[in-house]
Design a protein around this nucleic acid. Structure first.
Length: 378
DNA sequence: CAGTCGTGGGG
DNA sequence: TCCCCAAGACT
């Protein structure tokens, strides 16, 4: 990219950003910790979803020292429902590294940041640019799309040589005045204007410079990402409820829902009065009679979990197998559970029980406006 | 490099 | 209902 073209695009992005940027809680701070938390939460996650999580997280762990001293399960619980839970684990590891090996100060440029767990090329560039005002590129999905269109890059820009070309162009845009605002501006234009569907080219500050637009190729560029094939997985979830508590089982430290608490998952769709009962006895559990209470279809990136939900109500056994625990329903927000656990639990409860729990469950999990029901009803 | 790892919103 | 996908990183 020619220096003139880069300067022109940079100036247009900067002007537009200063006039149109959304006010977000992590904007207007140079605190690398705050910037970092927001960046990790935003990975593959919509801003609207992140907002309540970010507020709670920063209130509870306002500094890297506080986070470094946090309990792993408390952090997982704070992440509950956000998905991609390994992010939280790597974040905790990085916080401890910053405190123990960097005197609590983040490295002030991308190379140093890149060495920390959970910092990839994007996050390192973003923190370097936003917090330290370094002239670094921060190429996320938004910037990839924007740059691919600006330069009319054909083919797959998500990986390989296509991704390299995007980074090269983004790095050409980085040097100059206010690099932090330029980097955020590129992201913001990608997020609000140069959108994947129905891009608002009429409102775009760099429409004049856009090669895809000149070629009438905006709809075609970037080429759609190759998507993973989803495999259906049949499971049976056993929700054992007793005395206002539910029996949960901790997942292994690696893999799906790592270290989180889930219902007892059995492979396959098992009959309540036969195979399911047998499988539980293999866990040395006597759940008593099982009743089928519904089904949950939970879609993940590479799998679709098709879950048959069974409910057990026998009296709690004296001793539980390793890795299992009783979770009080009125304290479930303090437990590290993925959304699928909450959904299975919902499916196992009757309406009255659900209503009771809803009063105590965190209402910010969903935006109130999205509920569609009036307050006081229900 | 290709597979793994969540969730919820919107067309 | 289905499909796309959103401020990616790690193995």
């Amino acid at each position: 990219m020619s220096p003139d073209r880069a300067a022109s695009i940079r100036a247009a992005i900067l002007d537009w950003y200063r006039a149109n940027a959304r006010e977000l809680p992590w904007r207007g701070t140079r605190d690398p910790y705050a910037v970092w938390i927001s960046e990790v939460m935003c990975q593959q996650t919509r801003v609207d979803t992140v907002l309540p999580y970010y507020a709670r997280f920063m209130a509870r762990w306002p500094t890297v020292e506080a986070l470094a001293a946090a309990d792993d399960d408390d952090v997982r619980a704070a992440w509950s429902g956000l998905g991609y839970y390994r992010r939280a684990q790597l974040m905790l590891k990085a916080a401890r590294e910053v405190v123990s090996q960097h005197q609590g100060r983040f490295p002030d440029d991308a190379d140093g940041l890149l060495a920390l767990p959970g910092f990839g090329r994007y996050t390192a560039g973003a923190v370097a640019a936003f917090a330290f005002d370094r002239p670094r590129a921060a190429v996320d999905g938004n910037v990839t799309r924007l740059v691919a269109r600006l330069e009319a890059l054909e083919g797959d820009v998500m990986q390989g040589s296509g991704a390299q070309a995007v980074w090269r162009a983004a790095e050409a845009l980085a040097p100059g005045a206010s690099p932090g605002d330029v980097a955020q501006g590129l992201i913001e234009v990608g997020a609000l204007v140069c959108t994947a569907r129905n891009p608002r080219c009429g409102a775009c500050p760099v429409a004049e410079a856009c090669k895809a637009r000149a070629q009438g190729a905006v709809e075609r560029i970037p080429a759609p990402r190759k998507r993973a094939t989803k495999k259906a997985v049949a499971l049976t979830a056993v929700l054992w409820l007793d005395g206002g508590r539910v029996l949960l089982s901790r997942q292994p430290e690696a893999g799906l829902f790592a270290s989180l608490w889930c219902p007892i998952f059995l492979e396959g769709h098992l009959e309540p009065d036969g195979a399911a009962d047998e499988a539980l006895r293999a866990h040395r559990l006597d759940p008593g009679p099982l009743t089928s209470t519904g089904q949950v279809r939970h879609v993940l990136t590479h799998r679709t979990l098709e879950i048959h939900v069974l409910r057990a109500s026998n009296k709690a056994p004296r001793r539980l197998p390793e890795g299992m625990a009783w979770a009080p329903l009125d304290a479930l927000t303090e437990w590290a559970i993925p959304s699928v656990t909450a959904r299975c639990l919902d499916a196992a409860l009757d309406r009255a029980e659900r209503a009771k729990i809803r009063l105590t469950r965190r209402e910010t999990r969903r935006t109130p406006a999205a509920q569609g029901s009036l307050p006081g009803l229900e």
